[in-house]
Design a protein around this nucleic acid. Structure first.
Lengths: 225, 225, 225, 225
DNA sequence: AATGAATGAGACTTCATTCAT
DNA sequence: AATGAATGAAGTCTCATTCAT
């Protein structure tokens, strides 16, 4: 069962650094994308900590180590910036969750369970490796400023999960797929939030146990009759 | 089993109106608390919709139908206002969840299950009756401006749940109480958020099924050995 | 010939002061319009001196003796301000030129000449009494920021002149009415501009002689044949 | 009468192109002045369209097809640029109006009239050939940034006209030379401005008629007595 | 010599808070 | 006690100018 044998793969953790070091260079000269990357990172941290309205653009610029005017050379305005930060983080989440996931027969319960455990582990790894990204993405009310492109990215993460859920819960009773996804996602978010607020400390074992509990929530039980 | 026989009690739904109409009056003379109440309600709505930093104080005053200066007679400043809004909403949530709950023997599984179902129902009722309060309370990053008093109120809601969880999961295996609470709370929040964002529509039956799924997550299974 | 017997009427000169003193007051309390008026006057002076783009809003506020924020209570933004300044000045020009002008039989040359002399004198009085208004109105390229309302006011000044010109030059040969108006208006503007730049000094006699010269430019000569 | 027999000479029209193609070259190598010329032209267009304060330096550089830094190699700063643009345009106007004008006996009325008609025609040709130059030169409030050198050039255009006017109006009654020049110049500017704003359309015949009307304004009439 | 990325001063505008009425 | 006009600090964004490449 190769799926869960990912201990050696460090997903999530390296997405960002990959992006950074992969910045196109020509003969050693760092290109525009470098500065862009630095600003995006600084903005993510600020937005994650204080929200969109609570963050001043010069703050972001300073954190990125560039002048305010420079930031505006890379992003048309604050709204464009937050949208790119959002898409960027969401893409990384997407990669962390879905990259390299093989097509599996989720109708077989033991395979489905392993698949879910893997997903949960990846989520945990992402939340640990990129706490700011995770926190930012789970903020309420991006709606206010997200543009069409960002909403599309949003769907590109949800859709695969929804498809998997659909296959997983074919012929099962209980809540519909939408509800199950919302519950699971919320449960995970709640866990991370509680940790951030200091209500609990998570180690790998507890994270795994939490995942197992969540699996019990959705484990298919055949419909009556 | 009186616990679940609360169908006739409309908890939650009336919390706000009770607060409103219960504003202390003496022989028909409206008291100070009336205006206070109105401002708090207007502020809650605004904060829930646009967040703390996205809401302007004069905006709140106008929505409350009072002058800006008047608002400052009741609340020292914007931060004091948001803290009071927070405590006020949290108290109402507390009442909606915990009021009149009898002491139960949660070590007996069928009683515990009924107790959880009731809790879940009350949560649902609160989220429906006071969407703004629920949304506001679950916003991230109150931390930035919450004061000690507010954090205390926060605990006054959590503590009873924690105690109940403790009793419920004595001798059970799986995640610790903190983790379970975080998962459950998060799951419910995720459900409501998904509904608000239009990812799903909830009717009473689906809400109940969701609750049942969550119960499966925490239903005590005796420790091995 | 009552037309030219206006020596006792001080047109133009008093339009502004009238506006000022006529600010609605109730029991001696100066009303909102007062501050509005002060800001408009300060803005006119600044715009006349340095143009729209050359004038900073806080400059105007300071000249008006109010805080920057205050200015924005009265005018939505800089563009709204300049439009109101424009309309305000143009209306005053209109009043100064056209107020109380009787209907005359401009087909009779001697009446037409007196009418023109009167118009010229009024122009001179306006330019003298309100140099800033005159200078501002004759700046190039208001077009960039003028809104529909302002363009309407523009026409309300031009239309009557155009009608008069039409009547005056019925059956005359030479340039069309549009051309004549443009020439005359331009000639007057050139005169004032030259004075402002120090190329000449105008006394009443020279102004009158200039008007007479202009009259020669348009004095109707019957068409040949 | 060679003066008016200039129908075949295309003055004005070619001033700019002459300047351009006449940029000093040596054996096909484009010289510094080429780039200078291009920048001046781009700047003129921008300043004419949006004014000094409404024009950004990088905008000019881009329109000229050079880097921003390059522009600063040719002009010390924005103010130096606008001054050079001004002098350049004014010189071209000077050439267009005065080049090749023979010394004439303006005391003879019919010669003076022909001379004036020629001047008017040249003005018209210049305004048509170089609308941007004409528009820019007639903008108000160059004063703010014009330096001594520019003001000198201004005079080098005015002085010859003033001399001619002096000779023309020796012993005539009516307004002084300054006034007459201001009126005429203003009249022509008004005509062109009206055309630009769409208040009228000018063809050659109307332009000539306008010139004739203006001549009537200044045609010398012997002093009484 | 040419470039254009970088910058910070300064422009426009908002808003938390005060205070005279 | 209630008001809302007034304010200036602070936020978003632009642009004249510099300087490393």
């Amino acid at each position: 069962m190769t799926v869960i044998d990912t201990g050696s793969i460090n997903y999530g953790m390296n997405v960002r650094s990959v992006n950074k070091s992969a910045a196109k260079r020509r003969r050693g000269r760092p290109l525009v994308d470098d500065k862009r990357r630095i600003i995006l990172d600084a903005a993510l941290e600020a937005f994650a900590a204080r929200g969109y309205h609570g963050t001043a653009v010069p703050e972001v610029a300073e954190a990125a180590g560039v002048g305010t005017g420079t930031l505006y050379r890379y992003f048309a305005n604050k709204e464009a910036l937050v949208n790119e930060v959002y898409r960027d983080a969401k893409q990384r989440l997407r990669t962390a969750l879905l990259a390299g996931a093989p097509e599996l027969d989720l109708s077989r319960t033991e395979i489905a369970e392993a698949w879910f455990a893997e997903l949960w582990r990846r989520l945990g790894a992402f939340a640990k490796a990129e706490p700011d990204a995770f926190r930012f993405l789970e903020m309420q009310d991006h709606v206010e400023y997200l543009d069409a492109a960002s909403r599309e990215v949003e769907l590109s993460v949800l859709a695969p999960l929804w498809m998997a859920g659909k296959r997983l819960r074919e012929r099962a009773e209980g809540p519909t797929v939408d509800v199950v996804i919302a519950l699971l996602w919320g449960a995970f978010v709640g866990l991370i939030k509680a940790q951030r607020l200091g209500y609990l400390r998570l180690d790998d074992k507890q994270l795994e146990q939490a995942g197992a509990a969540c699996w019990r929530m959705i484990a298919p039980r055949p419909k009556k009759g």
